[in-house]
Design a protein around this nucleic acid. Structure first.
Length: 432
DNA sequence: TCTGGGGTCCTAGGACCC
DNA sequence: TCTGGGGTCCTAGGACCC
């Protein structure tokens, strides 16, 4: 048996935990650039705010319906997540932290009173962190996800599922008829692993509900789609195909990418932005104890706006593999100069580090020893200073950036205060 | 004016090898 | 001009997740 415990409207719930005045009103948390909604309270969902909906489309709701928009505070959410996860771990012997707001608990076979224990854990999480959660319990991860969805929706949308399944839904305690009923009420696209594309293709074949999907022969799922969908079908049929990943897999890629507040049309601000991304990425790389052998840098125009399209990436090999900010910034800027072409309104850029390897120097790996040792001290000192005094206190200068620069990127950097958010002092703050 | 950021996995197709 | 079959590796692109 698996449990899936996850926080309801997680980022909004984190904000609410410290600002009770946000309870009961429509609230959303916006993305980095205040670009779009990334977390919505139930009230905001009821107003029709969609996940990922751009902020500028929400003006009316802000003005006329009292929608409150908050800029994100990812450090807070990370802290709250840690607390929630350690409490959730109390439900069973093994835990997989699947995302910032979800964890699977495994090896629950034979645990007595599982449903009651699940209620107790969610009550404890609510009491100690202020985060409301729902729990799905089932013999496969996919069904646990479904049960979690049922637990949430039956509370949020009365009538969608039987009311007694609110908050905690245990597949093992359902009758065959109840299971069929639940699967039949759930759209195939709601199932974990079935996204927009595949659900459209399934619909063409007459597979509309989770029940239809569960009744699809596994081989047909494989032949018509892929082994991924086949696994999903089997899991819906109660055959566990996905095990618990208790230790996080080694990172394969580290990225830092951003959309710009304004389109960028010239090279200097782009160099500045990309240098910043490479710096952030290098910090993450060192924090993970890794070096990168390859760096991708990309820039592109907005897919939402008319005009000439530009979408290019450069791949720079790093030999020897490095975690040195100077080396990574240089590589990123070099790549950028290769792909850059004037005449485009660039909306987004980023740096991705790939082919990661452990930072420890292997015995006999003489080639790497000198540079790694030298870089190490300086970078370590930089990380410490930046951790203590704030991001970017010490940084690597990029070549070729003019002193004065009135372009979009800098404007965005200076506009630290979000375009629209509820001011912190307008809302009472609970005890920390 | 304004549309997230960070990931993973799978597959198809090309290059290359014997 | 005719022109095998099987395997591996790599990469790009697609699809998905939160």
């Amino acid at each position: 048996m698996f449990a899936l415990i996850d926080g309801n409207n997680f980022y909004v719930s984190c904000e609410r935990a410290f600002r009770p005045a946000l309870q009961g009103i429509p609230v959303i948390v916006l993305s980095n650039n205040d670009g779009c909604a990334i977390s919505r309270s139930d009230e905001a969902k009821a107003l029709g705010v969609k996940m990922g909906q751009p902020f500028f489309q929400l003006r009316d709701l802000v003005e006329h319906k009292g929608l409150v928009c908050l800029s994100p505070n990812f450090e807070l959410y990370g802290d709250m997540s840690d607390r929630m996860m350690s409490l959730a771990a109390g439900l069973g012997p093994t835990q997989e932290i699947y995302s910032i707001d979800e964890s699977f608990i495994g090896d629950l076979d034979g645990v007595r009173d599982l449903t009651r224990r699940a209620f107790a854990i969610r009550a404890r999480i609510l009491k100690w962190t202020g985060i409301p959660t729902c729990v799905g319990l089932a013999p496969t991860k996919t069904l646990a996800k479904l049960c979690n969805h049922v637990a949430k929706d039956s509370e949020r949308k009365p009538g969608s599922y039987p009311a007694e399944l609110q908050r905690v839904c245990n597949w093992a305690e359902l009758s065959e008829q109840q299971r069929i009923d639940i699967l039949g009420r759930t759209a195939a696209g709601e199932i974990w692993g079935v996204g927009r594309r595949i659900s459209a293709q399934l619909a063409e074949q007459g597979v509309l509900t989770a029940l239809d999907l569960a009744r699809l022969p596994a081989q047909a799922a494989r032949d018509g789609w892929s082994v991924v969908l086949e696994r999903t079908v089997r899991e819906l049929q109660g055959v566990s195909c996905m095990s618990l990943e208790t230790s996080p897999a080694a990172k394969k890629q580290i990225a830092c990418t951003r959309s710009f507040g304004y389109p960028i049309t010239t090279l200097p601000p782009l160099i500045e932005a990309v240098s910043e991304f490479a710096t952030r990425a290098a910090e993450k790389l060192r924090a993970a104890g890794l070096r990168a052998s390859a760096l991708h840098v990309f820039a592109h125009t907005s897919p939402f706006r008319p005009g000439p399209r530009f979408y290019k990436t450069a791949l720079i090999q790093l030999q020897p593999p490095s975690s040195d900010t100077k080396a990574l910034v240089n590589a990123a800027v070099r790549g950028l100069r290769i792909i850059y072409e004037p005449g485009y309104q660039l909306s987004k850029a980023g740096v991705m580090l790939q082919d990661l390897c452990p930072a420890e120097v292997q015995q006999g790996d003489l080639l790497f020893q000198e540079p790694v040792r030298d870089q190490g001290k300086l970078m370590e000192a930089m990380d410490k200073v930046n951790k203590r005094f704030g991001k970017g206190t010490v940084h690597v200068a990029s070549t070729g950036v003019p002193e004065q620069d009135e372009s979009g990127w800098r404007m965005r950097q200076e506009r630290r205060t979000p375009r629209y958010t509820t001011k912190i002092d307008e809302i009472p703050i609970a005890r920390a």
